[in-house]
Write a protein that binds this DNA or RNA. Structure first.
Lengths: 174, 174
DNA sequence: CCAATTAATATGAATTCGCATATTTATGCC
DNA sequence: GGCATAAATATGCGAATTCATATTAATTGG
């Protein structure tokens, strides 16, 4: 991740990258997240741990696979994150009664308290960003982002991003 | 990165995460990039290598630090990427005449050819995405993304993302 | 001009992460 | 019920990434 101090200007007229949607998405995501991620690390949490806490605050007792999808990470990696969070007393595992292959992850009181506090701070941080945008810009942006995401959702019935260009792309990620 | 097949739905009414700007940015970026990144890897390139090729196609002979900023990665990591790309004959290093601390990175003919082809394919891929959005939506989205990015640019004269919430955040990333 | 400081890059160790696969449990079919 | 298959998670290992710091070169102040 680029450090805050040395983020450089995007010039839309200076070639391909500055007007490339995938780059703008990655760069904006990186830029907007850097500060809060630094704050998360100051609290002794890693960024993926914060994401899991946030997801569990929304809905406690989710399964590992589900959480990994939400938190944009691999299942095997999440398993290790959960190990670490459990050893810190933030979450605990409990295997599902109905299907004992499933492992459900629950917040401990400490996890709920820390997660709740960070969610409040994240919302305050988000309000501060939005306050610096034009009125209505954030709503438009969020809609467009949800729209982009929805294009690629499983079961949308549309092949994901076929390419009209010179080389045929795979329709599915490996 | 979440696999394409198991990306799940974002429900804006289901709690914090589904309406959190930083999450929507990360999720949309991840979703939109997955297919093309898979294509890049099929070409024998790693994603960071593709980013560097693209940046060099825009402007050849950039310095290492500059490229790392653009490509949203750490300098020490980029050094290793450049090593690898050089060993594959895609780029070559040349130290700056005026300031010999600086290392400038240049495309080889093979690098320019591969980069040029991938840029064309990336643009085709981008057109395919934009074709599935509403008319004008892409332009609005890109503007908003540039706006977000600009908020955090060094030297903007505004403290990056001060938080009005219960806990004061650092104003600078570590 | 020399010492101290700063800037740009490189290096090595440590951490994080992803891929392939093993393990355990459920489900479907005969 | 028993076997084949599929699903959910865990594990081991290798690759990718970061962190701290070394190295080399330029700049600044005396």
């Amino acid at each position: 991740m680029a450090k805050d101090e040395d983020r450089i200007e995007i010039d839309r007229n200076a070639g391909f990258v500055g007007d490339y949607l995938l780059y703008l998405l990655a760069a904006a995501s990186d830029a907007a997240s850097t500060d809060f991620h630094a704050h998360v690390r100051e609290q002794g949490l890693r960024v993926p741990e914060w994401r899991i806490l946030a997801c569990l605050c929304d809905e406690d007792g989710q399964m590992v696979t589900q959480l990994a999808q939400l938190a944009l990470m691999e299942q095997s990696h999440l398993t290790k994150i959960i190990d670490h969070m459990a050893s810190k007393g933030l979450v605990k595992r409990r295997s599902d009664e109905r299907d004992r292959r499933r492992v459900r992850v629950f917040l401990t009181p400490a996890g709920r308290e820390l997660g709740g506090r960070l969610v409040d701070e994240a919302q305050a941080h988000e309000r501060a960003i939005i306050a610096r945008l034009r009125p209505g810009e954030a709503a438009l942006l969020k809609d467009a982002l949800r729209h982009i995401h929805a294009l690629y959702r499983a079961g949308s019935g549309v092949a994901p991003a076929p390419v009209a260009g010179p080389v045929k792309l795979e329709t599915r990620a490996t």
